[in-house]
């Protein structure tokens, strides 16, 4: 097993954990945590691919840095959305935040 394969498998593990949490959690905060796991896997995969192949290492590291910036922006917005939803509905359960059914 080459080192690149091992790092990609770890990134895949992070993606799988994130998908599992995303589909299984029943509150917005739990889903936010799962999204962060998945984005981390993406960053690790990008850096490993650029560091362990002939591809441009600078491009890989900067790309992962941009992924981190996007993750921070996304977390900020999700925090605001969660606050608004919990004020309006009084809960952050995904099953109760729905008005179309009524």
């Amino acid at each position: 097993m080459s080192p690149l394969l091992l790092y990609q498998l770890v990134a895949l593990l992070l993606l799988c954990l994130g998908i599992f949490g995303m589909t299984q959690r029943r509150s917005f905060v739990g889903m936010l945590i799962s999204v962060e796991l998945m984005l981390n896997g993406a960053g690790l995969s990008i850096v490993a691919s650029s560091q362990l192949t002939e591809a441009s290492a600078v491009l890989g590291q900067l790309g992962a840095l941009l992924v981190m910036g996007l993750a921070a922006a996304e977390a900020t917005l999700v925090l605001a959305i969660i606050v608004v939803v919990s004020r309006r509905f009084g809960t952050t359960k995904t099953s109760e935040v729905s008005t179309l059914k009524e």
Partner: peptide, 25 residues
């Protein structure tokens, strides 16, 4: 970025919605 900022944001989300108290999970 992650441990310093994002983790604090998630903790604020837990705190502001009192997500832990009602035990939604």
């Amino acid at each position: 970025i992650y441990v310093g900022a994002v983790a604090v944001i998630v903790f604020f989300a837990v705190m502001l919605t009192r997500a832990d108290e009602g035990g939604e999970e």
